[in-house]
Nucleic acid binder design. Sequence first.
DNA 1: TAATAAATTCAGAATCCCTTCAGTATTGGC
DNA 2: GCCAATACTGAAGGGATTCTGAATTTATTA
Lengths: 224, 224
Amino acid sequence: MKILIVEDEKELSTSMATYLQRENYTCDIAYNVNEGRIKMETFDYDCILLDISLPDGNGLQILKELKVDKKLDGVIIISAKNSLDDKIAGLNLGADDYISKPFHLSELSARISAIIRRKRFQGNTVLVLNELTVDLVAKTVLVHNKPVELTRKEFDLLLYLLSNKNRVISKNAIAETLSGEDVHLYDNFDFLYAHMKNLKKKLTGAGCADYIKSIYGMGYKFAI
Amino acid sequence: MKILIVEDEKELSTSMATYLQRENYTCDIAYNVNEGRIKMETFDYDCILLDISLPDGNGLQILKELKVDKKLDGVIIISAKNSLDDKIAGLNLGADDYISKPFHLSELSARISAIIRRKRFQGNTVLVLNELTVDLVAKTVLVHNKPVELTRKEFDLLLYLLSNKNRVISKNAIAETLSGEDVHLYDNFDFLYAHMKNLKKKLTGAGCADYIKSIYGMGYKFAI
DNA sequence: TAATAAATTCAGAATCCCTTCAGTATTGGC
DNA sequence: GCCAATACTGAAGGGATTCTGAATTTATTA
């Protein structure tokens, strides 16, 4: 899952990035409004952390533009000032949440995962699909109420499939979320095949129906 | 565990802080309504000790705001006057408890730990998990009814794991709670590995099942 | 202040799993 | 049915992650 950090204080932005990378997010950093704008136009982010006061302008400006483009999904405003005005302005402009400096990184992380849950899973913390249960907070998977141990990549893969339930997703898209790389041309999808195989094996091995369908020449689909 | 003290009498607030720090709480002090408000918005506290009469306003005011934000968990009202009015007003506004000056610090401490228990462990003072018994009041651990001596950090670690039973928790999050206050990023988790190893060794050494699972690339889980 | 316990750091060892690879199977177009 | 392209499989190497015991620093107690 990709996060953009728009924050000019270098020390803060790097420690945010490091912390979030350890939580298995992929992070980009932009140090000003302009950089931020470019990155947002270029990539798709699951969440954007937006500082208000930036060297070349006001972060709220970006928010306004995003609103026009209707791309303002998953924005968390970060503000040094604990000003109620900023908070209200930000939320009015369509930000999803607000956190003021200084904050605990775990608090930030919790809010990010809440937002991503909201975007990808309508805010559900537990997904129940017949015999398959996925707990997004506990990071556990049950099949017929019995735990199935997945590795990190397998879990991420399953989540990506589930967030695109009944839709065909391309191998490129899957590979990107799995690898965490920004832009990467994959000469082959062997690593993806391997993870897919292992995930399917673990699920069906535990008695789960084979919901993950391979669509020849297209990609994969979690069909339920 | 973090506590905010909102109290303008400097002598009292520092002696409260000192006492509570000895009980291994991390304390912040705010000397007026405004400071208190800022700290509350910025940090997450397990408990807030709120004086009613403050130089720049009434503590109940903060309580009202907290109620709006639904963050009013774990508030203990402190008042000089033993006025029933204040007490009723405070509890009506959603405070969890009330203590009137002068009070014994041990009394305060007891109420704090009761509140934190209520918040984190649904009010239980003793957690029983098969052969493992954890007394939150006495701060003792029994395995097969025999005491196991844990250090502070080990006990805190165990508590954090227990309060997230059957959930995978990240090393980031564990490190933050263990270290207490600092917004500090760890270049490595060696100290965590050490505590985890020692805790596991003490528990299993006393005949406890190995409930603490390491989840590769994700964190740890107390699985029971 | 000395003595003791605890917390943290360190380096080497052990473990896990991600990726790659080579071979095999499946698919759709002809 | 044949062929090329695509997808799957099991196994293995290597790198990242975690564990461990001991050493060092820090905190606590007497």
